[in-house]
C-alpha cells in the first residue's frame, strides 16, 4: 500500500510536469488574451494606441445596447444558427441513414459526402458566390430553365435573399460533419434489434422513431452542440459571401469590423465579450438540458 501511494505520488508529479508546457501555452494564447479583451472592453483603447487609454467603465456596453446594428447582428446570428443547425441535423440524419444501408461502394460514397467538409470555408463561400452570381450564376440559370423564377435573382446582395444564401452554403459545408457523427453512432447500434423489429412486422418509420432515434440521441446531442457553438461564432462565410451587409452581419463580423476596420478596440472588445458571454451561456444551458432530458425521457418512455 505504501509503495502504491508513493508510486501514485510520483505519477501525479510526472503528470503535472507533462501538463505544464501545454497549460502554459494555453494560458498565453487563450486565457491571457481573453482576459485582456474583457479588460479592453472597459476602456477607450484604439488600435493605434493600445498602451495609452482611459478606463471608461461600462460606457462601451451602453453604446452597444443602443446600437440597432448590434441587435441586428445578434438576431442574424441566432436565426442563422437555429435554421442552419436544424437543416443540417435533418439532412445529416437522412444522408447517414442512406449511407448506413449495406451497399456496394459505401466507402467511396462516404468519402464523396465528406468533400464539402474538407474544403476551406473561404473557398466554399467563393464557389457558391460564383454559383449564386446574379448574371452568370448556374443557380439562376437552372431555376430560370425550370421555370421556378421569372427573372435572375441577386442571391448574395438582395436583402431578402442574402441570409438564405448564407444558410444554404453553411448547410452544404457542415452537413458532412453531422452525417459522419450520426453514421458513426448508427454503426454502433446492435443489428439484432432491427431483425427483431422486422420479424415483428413493425413499420420502418416507427422503428426509426421508437428505436433508432432514442439510441443515437446522445451522439446527436453532441453533434448538435458542436455545430451550434460553431455556428454562433460564424465569420468567414459572411465576410466572404456577402461582405458587411446588414442583413447577414453576424456578431463576429460586427465585432471584427469595430476592432480592426474602425480600430475601436474598446468598443469592439465589448462586442466580442458579449459574444463570448452568449456562447458560454448557451454552452452551459445546452449541456445542462442535454443531461437532464434523456433522463426525464427515460422515465416516461
Amino acid at each position: 500500500m505504501a509503495h502504491g501511494s508513493a508510486l501514485a505520488r510520483e505519477r501525479r508529479r510526472a503528470a503535472a510536469l507533462f501538463l505544464a508546457p501545454m497549460l502554459a501555452v494555453l494560458a498565453l494564447v487563450a486565457v491571457w488574451p481573453l482576459a485582456r479583451t474583457v479588460y479592453f472592453s472597459f476602456t477607450d483603447a484604439t488600435l493605434g494606441s493600445l498602451d495609452s487609454y482611459v478606463i471608461v467603465g461600462v460606457e462601451n456596453y451602453r453604446w452597444l445596447a443602443e446600437d440597432p446594428d448590434w441587435w441586428r447582428a445578434v438576431r442574424n446570428t441566432v436565426v442563422f444558427t437555429v435554421v442552419s443547425v436544424t437543416l443540417e441535423t435533418m439532412l445529416g440524419l437522412v444522408i447517414a441513414l442512406a449511407l448506413n444501408a449495406r451497399l456496394p461502394g459505401r466507402g467511396l460514397l462516404r468519402a464523396a459526402v465528406l468533400i464539402p467538409w474538407a474544403i476551406p470555408t473561404v473557398v466554399s463561400a467563393q464557389m457558391w458566390g460564383w454559383m449564386f452570381h446574379d448574371l452568370y450564376g448556374v443557380v439562376n440559370e437552372a431555376l430560370l430553365a425550370a421555370g421556378l423564377i421569372a427573372a435572375p435573382k441577386a442571391w448574395t446582395a438582395d436583402p431578402d435573399l442574402s441570409m438564405t444564401a448564407v444558410v444554404l452554403v453553411d448547410v452544404w459545408k457542415a452537413t458532412p460533419f453531422m452525417t459522419l457523427l450520426i453514421l458513426a453512432a448508427l454503426q454502433m447500434l446492435p443489428r439484432d434489434l432491427y431483425e427483431a423489429a422486422r420479424v415483428d412486422g413493425i413499420h420502418p418509420v416507427r422503428v426509426f422513431f421508437r428505436v433508432t432515434l432514442p439510441l443515437i440521441r446522445p451522439a446527436l446531442m453532441v453533434a448538435v452542440i458542436f455545430r451550434t457553438l460553431d455556428a454562433l461564432r460564424v465569420f468567414d462565410l459572411m465576410y466572404v459571401l456577402t461582405g458587411n451587409i446588414r442583413e447577414t452581419m453576424s456578431m463576429s463580423v460586427y465585432a471584427r469590423r469595430q476592432l480592426i476596420d474602425f480600430q475601436d478596440i474598446g468598443y469592439g472588445s465589448a462586442a466580442a465579450t458579449a459574444l463570448f458571454l452568449v456562447v458560454a451561456l448557451i454552452t452551459v444551458t445546452t449541456i445542462t438540458l442535454g443531461r437532464v432530458r434523456p433522463g426525464g425521457k427515460g422515465g416516461s418512455g
Partner: peptide, 14 residues
C-alpha cells in the same frame, strides 16, 4: 469553443 473574435484584441496586443 472560444469564439475567435473574443480573443482578437488580446491576441493582437500579444
Amino acid at each position: 469553443m472560444f469564439p475567435q473574435v473574443a480573443v482578437l484584441s488580446g491576441l493582437f496586443e500579444l
